[in-house]
Design a protein around this nucleic acid. Structure first.
Length: 423
RNA sequence: GGAGGAAUGGCAGAGUGGUCGAAUGCGGCAGUCUUGAAAACUGUUGAGGGUCACACCUCCGGGGGUUCGAAUCCCUCUUCCUCCGCCA
């Protein structure tokens, strides 16, 4: 959520920046400012009424103590109107504040200067590319065929147990999954991230904190009986560790990593692009989360990008990095780099990581602050990234490493797997 | 799931209707002393709204109520503790 102060003081700049998202925010921001003004006016009136009635109450107390009951009773009558007034003003205040809040929830984050203009993923800017695209054997197979051929992933079995998009990993497939998780966590902890095991269901407040609610309510599985949500990403529980927290500057940088399954309803997705592991309702992901001093957050973002690069290099996967354009940028992000692995057998790029700086947008909702050198509370910056999402990494490994003698396991994973070939 | 108890500032812990945003201790910060540190002493130290700055207002787990007045009384929800039941 944007800070009111920023909208108040730099409205023109905000409108201009949001144009990159192809949004004309002018009327929305005017609405916010109007409500904000109203809120403060009502608050001031309410405060005055309360001050008056506080004063009277004290006088009444004194009068009773000194035995002047009659005078006290006379004063009591005066408080009746004040009470009515404060009740009305209080209701007005609540309504205005709620209206203001819900309007603020509808305004996305301000894109960073680096974000290119654009309306769709076509306009994303390729900023880096590395790794050789392998020459595959003739009649190379996409991963869903390989999965069947080597009996390592069973999609039909998942359908039977749960439904489409819930694969069952078997044998070496399951072991490879576990290997990837351990490998990713080891890389992240070696880079100074503290490993966290967090709940896979979260409450409403956590959903609001990181911005999944109210915006993407339909994308999460909702356990209505207990009003909990299955997490769509570890970002939600891990970042919410620090909700309602005031850090010291010396606490920076905060670096967490966690492995969790992720659950997404993916309502509205269909077609060839959701085949196999490309888009699932349940998948595994290892996430990195950072909380930073505002002056350091972009340095941190670059560091996270380097970190993910390193991992992909070790996995020997060809990949590229995109800077997302305004039209493709997530609602809460200020700047996002997407990592994509090239799947040779599918002849397309697969998104495997998304690394973002949210600046103060999440922190404002989370009330995640720090004390600056003057002892004043300031909003921190939050960042997160996948390091990494498993299914498409797995797809990339299976497809790019297929040979006539089976699928070669990348060297770094062999110690984790205990085998070097799937055949 | 059943019965009982509890929830107060970073932590511990007083406060059972008025002058309580809240004693006291610990911790934190600043200072005195010291070559330096420790100890001791002195001061300071919750969050938010509001204001140029003050004033002022709100917050004692959340919500609602009683009252002129609520941390304190009532209702409700949540969480924690103890006991019982069930159980990976």
């Amino acid at each position: 959520m944007l800070q009111l102060q920023v909208i108040r003081e730099e409205k023109a700049k905000v409108i201009d920046a949001l144009k990159k998202r192809n949004i004309d925010a002018e009327s929305m921001l005017n609405g916010v400012l109007l409500l904000d003004e109203k809120r403060r006016a009502v608050q001031t009136r309410l405060d005055n009424v309360l001050a008056e009635s506080n004063k009277l109450s004290k006088e009444i107390g004194m009068l009773y103590k000194s035995g002047k009951a009659q005078e006290a009773n006379a004063l009591k009558e005066k408080t009746a109107t004040l009470k009515d007034e404060s009740k009305q003003l209080g209701d007005d205040l609540t309504n205005t504040a709620e209206e203001l809040q819900s309007l603020l929830y509808q305004i996305p984050n301000i894109p960073n200067n680096l974000v290119p203009a654009g309306s769709s993923e076509e306009d994303n800017e390729e900023v880096f590319k590395e790794g050789d695209i392998p020459e595959l054997v003739e009649n190379a197979l996409p991963h869903w065929e390989l999965a069947k051929k080597y009996d390592i992933i069973d999609f039909e079995l998942g359908v039977k147990i749960a439904g489409a998009g819930f694969p069952v990993y078997k044998g070496k497939g399951a072991r490879l999954q576990r290997a990837l998780i351990s490998y990713f966590l080891d890389k992240n902890t070696a880079a100074g991230y503290t490993e966290m095991q967090v709940p896979h269901l979260v409450n409403e407040a956590s959903g609001f904190g990181t911005g999944q609610l109210p915006d993407k309510e339909g994308q999460m599985y909702h356990v209505t009986a207990d009003d909990l949500y299955l997490i769509p990403t570890a970002e939600v529980p891990v970042t919410n560790i620090l909700r309602d927290t005031i850090l010291q500057e010396s606490d920076f940088p905060v670096k967490y990593t966690g492995y969790t399954p992720c659950f997404r309803r993916e309502a509205g997705s269909y077609g060839a692009h959701v085949r196999g592991l490309n888009r699932l309702h349940q998948f595994d992901k290892v996430e990195i989360v950072r909380v930073e001093h505002p002056s350091k957050s972009y340095e941190a973002l670059d560091g996270m990008v380097e970190h993910v690069k390193n991992i992909l290099r070790e996995l020997e996967l060809p990949y590229r990095i995109l800077r997302l354009c305004g039209g493709d940028l997530g609602f809460t992000a200020a700047l996002t780099y997407d990592f994509e692995v090239f799947s040779t057998a599918q002849d397309r790029w697969l998104e495997i990581s998304s690394v973002s700086n949210f600046e103060t947008y999440q922190a404002n909702r989370l009330k995640l602050r720090y004390k600056d050198e003057n002892g004043k509370s300031q909003l921190a910056h939050t960042l997160n990234g996948s390091s990494l999402a498993l299914p498409r990494v797995l797809a990339g490994i299976l497809e790019n490493n297929q040979t006539n003698n089976g699928i070669k396991i990348p060297k770094v994973l062999i110690p984790y797997c205990g085998f070097d070939t799937i055949d």
